[in-house]
């Protein structure tokens, strides 16, 4: 029951940039919401708001289906080429 916040308050990057639509073909923009193993980062770590997190998760799943973003990567690929194909 401490008065101070335990963690720094985070802000939604997409709200600041006033994003209201995301294109799944622009893969570079998705990088901030993917872990190095290409998992979708949870909202509690990125600070995204619910609205934008929902948009991102849909867009990432579309990009995965379109073979623009991998579903998973092996341990080897994590070390050798982090975000190689997202540039």
């Amino acid at each position: 029951m401490s008065e101070k916040r335990k963690y720094k308050k985070r802000f939604c990057k997409y709200c600041e940039a006033k994003v209201d639509f995301m294109d799944y073909k622009e893969v570079g923009a998705l990088r901030f919401s993917l872990s190095e193993r290409y998992k979708i980062m949870p909202r509690r770590l990125t600070g995204n708001c619910k609205k934008h997190q929902d948009m991102i998760s849909i867009v990432i799943k579309r990009a995965r289906a379109a073979a623009l973003v991998p579903y998973t990567v092996t341990r080897k690929a994590v070390v050798t080429q982090p975000f190689e194909n997202l540039r």
Partner: peptide
């Protein structure tokens, strides 16, 4: 046309 690209995983 996005052209010839590397796939994120083999299909």
């Amino acid at each position: 046309t996005m052209g010839m690209r590397k796939l994120a995983y083999p299909i």
